[in-house]
Write a protein that binds this DNA or RNA. Sequence first.
RNA 1: GGUACGGUACCCAAGUGGUUAAGGGAGAGGUCUGCAAAACCUCUAUUCAUCGGUUCGAAUCCGAUCCGUACCUCCA
Length: 472
Amino acid sequence: MPIQIFNSLTRQKEAFAPLDPAGKRVLFYACGPTVYGKFHIGNARTFVMTDVVRRWLVKRGHDVQFAMNITDVDDKIIRKANDEGVASEVIAARYTDYFLSMLERLGNMGGVIHPKATQHIPQMVTMIADLVARGHAYATPDGSVWFEVGSFRDYGKLSRMPLDEMKQGERVDAAQQQLKRSPLDFALWKGAKEGEPSWPSPWGNGRPGWHIECSSMSMEALHSQTIDIHSGGSDLRFPHHENEIAQSECATGKRFARYWMHMGMLDIEGMKMSKSLGNVKNIDEVMEFIDPLILRYFFMSAKYGDKIDYTESTIHQCQSAMERMITADQSARRILGTDSPTDWNSDEELQATWNEFAAGMDDDFNSPRALAAIAKSVTLLNTRIANENDKASIARATALLAELREALGISGELVRKNTGGLGDEEIESLIAQRTQAKKDRNFTLADQIRKDLLGKGVQLEDSRTGTIWKRV
RNA sequence: GGUACGGUACCCAAGUGGUUAAGGGAGAGGUCUGCAAAACCUCUAUUCAUCGGUUCGAAUCCGAUCCGUACCUCCA
């Protein structure tokens, strides 16, 4: 049973079959950020869910060529640079670094091809020239080049916007509108203005429009005029992706992307995130007090295409679920000691859980179903710990849980801040005192030590194999 | 106005024509424990916004109504 993908272009689930005749290699392009400022939790959701998709394709044996562009020339970057009185490259470089470190903290896989717009200007110019030559684009006296939407019969096939209706909502920019043949036409090349970065072109100095870079760089980075999967936030469906399709398919005469995937938006406490509401949450501020693992769990708790609501209550729920998962793993590993988790394939109960997980992920990357399967594997593991003395059985269940978590990128432990200034040795020493007190049946002292430690953020648990502790 | 999407238990959330409507969180009871914690077991939707219709059979399909949301303009 192949992976099913909900294709935004056809609005239905389709069996995924890559272009590669061998069915192995997958060309995957995701729209990346414009690097002009910090990123918010909604951005993070899109990038994490994209990583979840990529991980599963890899897990299913595909050789995934994954590219995510970085838009490093743009109006917003220029404005920010002017505000700070620095070159726009300074701004772009700063937030590119910031972006890459954010992805790492969020637990995304590395090995991403990150093409930058400023490093692909010649390729874009070539594509624009092709479009002009083919009669799909025209230059205007200001040195700009526009894509003529009316020249592409299929325009609107992705967003399904009837062209007549769209003209009414078009933003009015008097100077630009006068130059264009139709209000819908969009910029491929923007004639240079004073104080802006620019590059030479057959139409004079200027810089690329926003959409052209994705068309050009996806083909360049993935070495193909047709790519398998193209993803991005659902707000990019129109006009960005619609325009990408138009210019790409007109330039090459070939189908641009075969499967379109769109990530749903994130609300805050039921409200759309917006500057005017003042509820934009920067991802680094959020990660100050919410562990990235919990965030990933939260993002995956709804299907990638659906809207998700960030609320304190939901985050707490995700934290509890994540802690249960981690506690089970820790308990198991204490019992196993130096023994390693082992292959679980021969274990029917575990095999069935894996099958549920895989069935969920194969079904359009249904992460909530996958998380349900993980919860099942946690219960199985805990049950074996509680009722069995069979290390081999526990080792197999531990291995499965680890594999499932890795498949979603939620391995590892929660990062705890050090509290109360207590070092590990100090804590261990107090625990030893308490253990002795318990032997002496001095429960008053034992309970006092436990209470003191809890006050300093260290929680004790007496397990079968001794007292364990964790920072809370 | 146009184009879409959604309304499933206290909360989050699967399920989209057919055995008892996944799973998590929270809550209740029980087991274990010196006590806690953790863990395990049991329980918590005769019902899927409302009203009609199609069907042997619908949360799932069709129609209407109510509510909520997004996109149409930079946006993950």
